Simulated assay, not measured.
Amino acid sequence: MYNNSSYTIEEVSQLLKISKLTVYDLIKKEELVAYRVGRQMRVDQQDLEIYKSKNRIGTVQKEDNHLSGENKETQHSRQVVISGQDVVLDMLSKYIEKHTSHTPLRSYNGSLNSLVAMYNGECDIVSVHLYDGDTEEYNLPYVKRILVSQPFILMNLVCRTAGIYVKQGNPLNLKGWNDLAQSKVKIINREKGSGARTLLDEQLRINGIPTNSLKGYEDELTSHFSVASAVASGQADAGIGIENVAKMVNVDFISLIKEQYDIVILKTNENVNLINVIKEAVTSQEYRSQLEQLNGYDLELTGNVKYETI
């Protein structure tokens, strides 16, 4: 008979009869050992047993008291999972930690994967920068389709410039999306589910460029920084990303589109306070002054509610 030697986060939550957010919090506090396999986090059976042994309580009475205290605490605070990769989310996480009793936990998934995670109840706040080639609109078409049965609020954090990283001096004289299909050009791609990958795929689709005409299309990295670094080191001639990262790496940048970097929060009774906290955060002078220190970000729409279901 086959025995599992490791568990997913969902399986751990079922075994311990706690929420997945609590499991993530235990991992963050290093009370439970975990490791990543690709984008998935897993816990070895042995480490789970070690955690259970360390937290055994001698009597039923003590265990009841422990649980009672835990429930009392969660009445006033909660773990909040924030999914996305931009540094502005790290800044938002620190604001939440500083000004509320909530415990922010960070997940670094791409936009589409984050939305799916929210649909599955695994995230509280997700960032999106998903371009829709049919409407030439960012984010809302995707959010409506994925969260079709759930009320939500879509709010802008920043606007960013997206485009193509090229080697310094742009030796291949690349100018736009169509140039990526040239036989002399090798690209480095982003992973499926990321906003940059969606932008490229949509531009290829609306421009009638088959994906198999791009050399390197199947080669994937998982961040703007790693893509820009691959171009700088000569592993590729071009890659899709955002402008501010180009300033950190020795690459040139071809500006092609202004994108909205928004956040999504589900409108539930549990999230009423969280939504108010986020609105307060993104419109506060403290948060805006931090954003103003960053290169390549436009704050004109910051804090604007782009869409809200009734």
Rank of each mutant, 00 (worst) to 15 (best):
L21N: 06
H129K: 07
G234Q: 08
I9D: 03
K215F: 10
G195T: 01
E286L: 03
V81R: 12
T268E: 12
V272T: 11
Q45K: 14
S111T: 04
V37E: 13
I263M: 08
E73R: 15
D90E: 11
N173A: 13
Y51K: 01
T198E: 14
R197E: 06
S284V: 11
V231C: 11
V277A: 04
N304R: 15
E10H: 05
G58E: 13
V249P: 02
H224V: 03
G296M: 09
L199C: 06
T103H: 10
Q46D: 05
Y217P: 00
T302H: 03
V282L: 15
L92H: 06
T222L: 12
Y2V: 15
G169F: 09
K144T: 01
R205K: 11
L274F: 06
L256C: 05
L256P: 09
S13N: 00
A236I: 07
I9V: 08
I275R: 10
R106P: 10
G84R: 04
D252W: 15
L221A: 01
E270M: 05
Q290R: 14
M41I: 15
V88W: 02
R78Y: 03
L21H: 13
S183C: 05
D47A: 01
K279N: 15
D124M: 08
Y287D: 00
R39W: 08
E11S: 00
G69L: 15
V43L: 03
G296A: 09
S101G: 06
M118N: 09
N120L: 14
T103Y: 04
N139S: 11
H76C: 08
V148N: 13
R288M: 11
L16A: 04
I240S: 01
S13Y: 04
S194A: 13
L299G: 09
I188P: 00
C159H: 13
Y51N: 04
Q285H: 11
G84K: 11
D25C: 00
K279C: 10
S213E: 07
D44K: 07
N244K: 04
L26G: 04
R39L: 02
I27S: 06
S77Q: 11
E280V: 04
Y51V: 01
S233L: 15
A196D: 14
Q85R: 11
L130K: 06
L301E: 01
K17W: 00
S213D: 07
L92T: 00
G38V: 14
L221Y: 10
Y7W: 11
K62A: 14
L15C: 02
G241R: 02
D25F: 13
S6Y: 13
L294A: 08
K215A: 05
G195N: 05
L147E: 03
D179H: 07
